[in-house]
């Protein structure tokens, strides 16, 4: 089949999607497939669930086949290991920001939008972009204030309020 080759990441994500497809089929099998007046709620999900499983297994199978054909592949030299480490660092960067974003959401109820968002901004500026703390505090305060002026004040859009009333 004429397809681009798949890597380990593709195979792992496809395996997860195959699991998702299996879950969809299993869930859908509990609902009516055909009712007296036509297809039931299980009809459509069963088919896209099956398609998800089949296509995901094609990706996994193609990867396994390629590994079996090529053996373990070329050895990982120093340059390759260095590039992989740099790539990992980049991913950790992004995941750290995502985690901080998720924590700031958890803090919305307690601290309110202004403070939670200010802390998120401070984290991004000071720790991710490594700017001086004074700059980080100024940016965090400035953007929080800007959001307050634009949304609740100018546009009357309600923002989450915390225990401090802001």
């Amino acid at each position: 089949m004429a397809e681009v080759s798949f890597n380990n990441g593709d195979a792992i994500s496809a395996a997860a999607l195959a699991g998702l497809g299996g879950y969809i089929v299993l869930e859908a099998s509990r609902w009516d497939y055909m009712a007296p007046d036509g297809p039931g709620p299980g009809f459509f999900p069963v088919w896209y669930g099956i398609a998800l499983v089949v296509l995901s297994l094609v990706v996994v199978g193609a990867r396994v086949f390629r590994i079996a054909q090529e053996g373990r592949g070329p050895g990982s030299g120093g340059a390759r290991a260095g590039a992989a480490a740099a790539k990992r660092r980049e991913i950790y960067h992004a995941l750290a920001v995502w985690l901080a974003f998720t924590i700031s959401i958890a803090l919305l109820k307690v601290l309110g939008f202004m403070l939670a968002f200010g802390l998120l901004t401070f984290f991004i500026v000071a720790l991710i972009y490594r700017r001086p703390w004074k700059v980080a505090i100024a940016v965090a305060a400035g953007t929080s204030l800007g959001f307050y002026l634009v949304f609740p004040l100018a546009l009357s859009v309600a923002l989450p309020v915390g225990v401090f009333g802001i």
């Binding site: 974003f101 500026v125 700017r131 940016v139 953007t143 949304f151 859009v157 923002l159 989450p160």
Partner: peptide
């Protein structure tokens, strides 16, 4: 600077969904 732009995008995203 991107360190100002990106937090703003996070903020607008949060406000957009919450609203």
């Amino acid at each position: 600077p991107t360190y100002i732009l990106f937090p703003i995008i996070f903020g607008i995203s949060m406000v957009g969904v919450y609203s």
